[in-house]
Amino acid sequence: MKNIMIIAIALFATISFAQKKERTLKVNKDTNLIEVVYYHDNGEVSQTGTYTLDGKLQGQWVSYNKEGDKTIVANYDNGKKSGKWFYYTDNGTVKEVDYSKNVIASLKETDLKANEDF
């Protein structure tokens, strides 16, 4: 019986420490938005952004790859795509997509090495 109890405790401890954080949530009382951070399996941040209290994407969202490099900067207004979105590529360019009323209004590609504004 004692051996079974030791095995059960060891198994519980292993499972508890093996669990990885998938996300963190916090309600910002000043903005009335839910701030969220999602994580990759390796513990690196996957996405950051905010939701409205009724669950719609709001404001700026930033996505990262497993190495922690920024891949996308997006903007939402009450769940709809809005404003400028930036898609960062591995070859050093950024694709800029401008949204108006949840529809693509314009596209542009820029070489990051030539333009340090990004």
Score class of each variant (00 low, 15 high):
residue 1 M to S: 13
residue 1 M to N: 12
residue 4 I to W: 07
residue 4 I to P: 05
residue 7 I to K: 05
residue 7 I to V: 09
residue 7 I to A: 11
residue 8 A to F: 08
residue 8 A to C: 11
residue 9 I to T: 12
residue 11 L to Q: 09
residue 13 A to P: 00
residue 13 A to F: 01
residue 14 T to D: 06
residue 15 I to Q: 06
residue 16 S to G: 04
residue 18 A to C: 08
residue 19 Q to N: 07
residue 21 K to S: 11
residue 22 E to W: 03
residue 23 R to C: 13
residue 23 R to M: 15
residue 26 K to A: 11
residue 29 K to C: 03
residue 30 D to R: 03
residue 32 N to E: 12
residue 32 N to R: 11
residue 33 L to H: 05
residue 35 E to S: 11
residue 36 V to F: 09
residue 36 V to E: 15
residue 37 V to F: 02
residue 37 V to G: 01
residue 38 Y to S: 15
residue 39 Y to E: 05
residue 42 N to Y: 10
residue 42 N to E: 11
residue 43 G to N: 12
residue 44 E to H: 09
residue 45 V to K: 11
residue 45 V to Q: 06
residue 47 Q to E: 15
residue 47 Q to I: 15
residue 52 T to Y: 03
residue 54 D to Q: 05
residue 54 D to W: 04
residue 56 K to P: 00
residue 56 K to V: 00
residue 65 N to M: 02
residue 67 E to C: 01
residue 67 E to M: 04
residue 68 G to Y: 07
residue 69 D to F: 09
residue 70 K to C: 12
residue 71 T to M: 15
residue 77 D to K: 14
residue 78 N to D: 15
residue 81 K to L: 13
residue 82 S to H: 11
residue 86 F to Q: 06
residue 86 F to G: 01
residue 87 Y to Q: 05
residue 87 Y to K: 06
residue 88 Y to G: 01
residue 89 T to E: 14
residue 91 N to K: 09
residue 94 V to E: 07
residue 96 E to L: 10
residue 97 V to T: 13
residue 98 D to V: 09
residue 98 D to C: 04
residue 99 Y to M: 08
residue 102 N to P: 06
residue 102 N to V: 08
residue 109 E to C: 00
residue 109 E to M: 04
residue 111 D to M: 06
residue 112 L to M: 14
residue 112 L to H: 03
residue 113 K to L: 13
residue 114 A to N: 14
residue 116 E to K: 14
